Computed example of a mutant assay.
Amino acid sequence: MEFLSDYGLFLLKAITVVIAILFVVGGVVAVGARNRKPGSEGELSVRKLNDELEDDREQLEDAILSKDELKALDKDKKKEDKARLKAEKKRSKDGLESREVRKRVFVMDFDGDIQASAVDTFRREITAVLTMARPDDEVVVRLESGGGMVHSYGLAASQLKRIRDKGIALTVCVDRVAASGGYMMACIANRIVAAPFAIIGSIGVVAQLPNFSRLLKKHDVDYELFTAGEYKRTVTMFGHNSMKAKDKFQSDLEDTHDLFKAHVKQFRPRIEIEKVATGDIWYGQQAIENKLIDEVGTSDDYIVAACDRADVFGVRYEHRKTLQEKLGISLQKGIESAFTRILTVLSRQQQSKG
């Protein structure tokens, strides 16, 4: 028992040190971000995912197939290329377009925190895509978010609506979670695809804050609040909250919830909104039964299938990182990786004891 006690104390100290280091590293990265000069923020990175998929396939073929099989495969590919060139020549001779215009699919990622911070780069990616996208193209957004601030996610949702307003098909793929503000974004899509155990829903509004008024009163500390306008401030963390203030705050939450429900109903009219707008969450298969999504599947399957019928491009706006930021991020990743390994080992030990 003494060993376990010492080990537990050591683990708590280690976790405290790790958290302190992460805090310092985060500060270094934040300082580097603030010092970034305007006009040198970053650039748009575009990758053709068809080519990456083909490269992966060819590497597997080289590793798995025999020389005779590779030779036969190469022969078949040459036949296909020859037939395609012949068809293009015939079309050109007949006065038709020499090459069929292929549909294009643009893939973007949105990984949302409580402030929806990713919207700053997301809006630039969408703006860039909209300058090139044709009406028969498609935009796919791989979305991961448990929600956060209403106004921040409202702006992020508005960015997706820009795509819909241009008449371009929008698909949102959810592999882990699209809840609350995340679902506020996802519901705008023409089609929502979610993994079997992805968390969907949480159509509700929550707010909470501590109140220190009794503690301040106990220590003879007065808290004075001055406002102009009856509802400039309703509830507060430091003063006494009257029932009228609480009722007003609750009324504001209800109004926000009503707006949220109307938003979802506008883009998902088949949903029984009062049934699902309880703040509850559902997993993928349950979500499709409640018409919150359209299909159960992963983003990987959807994008691989898209590569068979279209030219698929991954679009990402990347900030140029200073040396200070690069060092900070590398250190942070190393510490996080070590911390994750420690937790994994502890989890396995607990499982083995069971």
Rank of each mutant, 00 (worst) to 15 (best):
V276P: 02
V276F: 10
L253I: 04
D280M: 05
R270K: 14
M243S: 12
V276R: 13
I273P: 02
H257W: 14
R268M: 09
V235K: 00
S251H: 13
L253C: 06
F238D: 13
G279A: 03
M237Y: 07
L253K: 03
E274F: 02
D247K: 10
T236L: 12
A262M: 09
N241T: 12
D280P: 00
F260C: 08
E274S: 13
W282Y: 14
E254D: 06
R268Y: 06
K248F: 05
R270G: 04
A245Y: 06
H263D: 07
V235Q: 07
L259W: 03
E272R: 11
H240G: 06
S242T: 15
R268P: 00
T278P: 02
A245G: 03
T236H: 11
A262G: 12
E254G: 00
K275Q: 15
K275E: 15
E272L: 07
K248V: 10
D255A: 05
D247L: 11
M243R: 14
T256P: 01
R268I: 08
D252A: 08
K265F: 05
D280N: 04
G239T: 03
I271C: 08
E254P: 02
D258T: 07
G279C: 04
V264E: 09
T234S: 14
R270F: 05
A245D: 11
G279I: 02
R270L: 10
D280S: 08
H240E: 12
E274V: 05
L259F: 10
K265L: 15
D252P: 00
D252Q: 04
A262N: 13
E274T: 14
K261F: 09
D258E: 15
A277C: 10
M243K: 12
H257I: 03
D255F: 04
I281D: 00
T234R: 11
M243T: 11
I273G: 04
K246N: 01
D258P: 00
L259A: 12
S251Y: 11
D280E: 11
K275C: 09
M237T: 13
T236M: 14
A277K: 03
H263K: 11
L259S: 06
F260S: 02
R270I: 10
D280G: 01
M237N: 15
E272A: 15
A277F: 10
G239S: 13
L253E: 03
I281R: 05
F267D: 03
G239R: 00
